[in-house]
Nucleic acid binder design. Structure first.
Lengths: 196, 196
DNA sequence: AGCCCTATTGAGCAAACGCTCAGCCCCGTC
DNA sequence: GACGGGGCTGAGCGTTTGCTCAATAGGGCT
């Protein structure tokens, strides 16, 4: 991502980078279904030919998704904070409005992963990354005596899966679940895991 | 689904019913992405014109999904069994290979629900139905003294969401999670809820 | 100026999709 | 046999995709 900032400073940002970031923006704004190559060319001010010179559409999607997922993984588990504060931040931001766009893209990627191997790889890496980051935080907290967990890996998997499931419920517009309630559910599971 | 058998027995099963059930079969076999109107006409042995006479594609999908979801809701929570046996069956079949097709369709429906109001309605009804069925079982078990839960509705929501999240993880082919492990996770949450 | 070469363009192609519509087939009625 | 009409057909339309390719613009080098 340092490439990005450096490129934006330059007078003539790499056209390839322009295309990539236009794709990221459009994906976050409108989701995959409404993001087509033509929309990317218009947003980035680039001809259709150049876009296809640099990317095949599948690869462009995968590259943009990788940027987005990496960014989230970096933001969610900020380094240097005490583990309990990291978890608190994780719970607080789990269902924040800004996270909604991310989850929509996550579900869309899951959908596409069956057909597109590039996206499957990106999604798999992001999953592993988020899961192991969560594992690390749980381990650090346990080492610091903040909590006691019988099986940190299993707890991380359950937290991640519940997070995912609740986010999916929220996205589907279920009237029986609010953002605040979803956060409570996630915190509740963690409390149960620590107590049990 | 008794309609199906009855229809197959009849000499001239309703063409409309033939189309509907061909759609159900194809959705279960190949998922939505690989199920197009042409595939339905071929499977049901019907001309494209007749299909479009009876259904618009969006409505046909929604109708087929409704059949599938209703069937699952009916099968999962069989009436007449003791609540603890119902829960055991729920856990045992939660990630069975046959359930995989269902979850793929569930995710695809979630995806489409934002664009298609008919599917959003069908999905919403199915969600409510499954959630309240789970609530009922939890309530019945508590009444029978099988377990004690602080908040049955919340527990039902958490179980459903964890189920959903784990199924999503399995579908995405995550190598870190097996069907058996997913079942253990779900049972573990229930045990925690009962204990806590 | 003349030349070359890379970056860039955009009209248009091929494929895939849902859906239409002119017409065919078949059966009941007179 | 003639006629009428509803069930049914399928070639093909219109649209939307991702992507190609001949053509162009423009800057550096001689």
């Amino acid at each position: 991502m340092t490439d990005t900032d450096a490129a934006e400073d330059r007078q003539t940002p790499d056209r390839r980078t322009q295309i990539l970031h236009a794709t990221v923006d459009l994906l976050l704004e409108n989701g995959l279904a409404a993001t087509r190559t033509r929309a990317v060319t218009e947003r980035s001010g680039v001809g259709t030919g150049l876009l296809n010179h640099y990317f095949r559409w599948n690869d462009l999607r995968a590259a943009a998704w990788k940027l987005i997922f990496d960014e989230v993984a970096k933001d969610t588990f900020a380094p240097g904070l005490p583990p309990d504060q990291v978890m608190d931040r994780y719970f607080a931001e789990a269902f924040a409005p800004e996270a909604e766009r991310f989850w929509r893209l996550w579900l869309e990627a899951t959908e596409l992963a069956k057909q597109d191997e590039a996206i499957a790889r990106v999604l798999g890496e992001a999953q592993t990354r988020l899961d192991s980051a969560l594992c690390d935080v749980l381990t650090a907290g346990q080492a610091a005596g903040l909590w006691t967990l019988a099986d940190r890996d299993a707890t991380a998997t359950r937290l991640g899966a519940l997070h995912d499931g609740l986010a999916g419920l929220l996205l589907s517009g279920s009237p029986r679940l609010t953002r605040a309630a979803a956060e409570v559910h996630l915190r509740h599971l963690f409390a149960l895991e620590c107590a049990g």
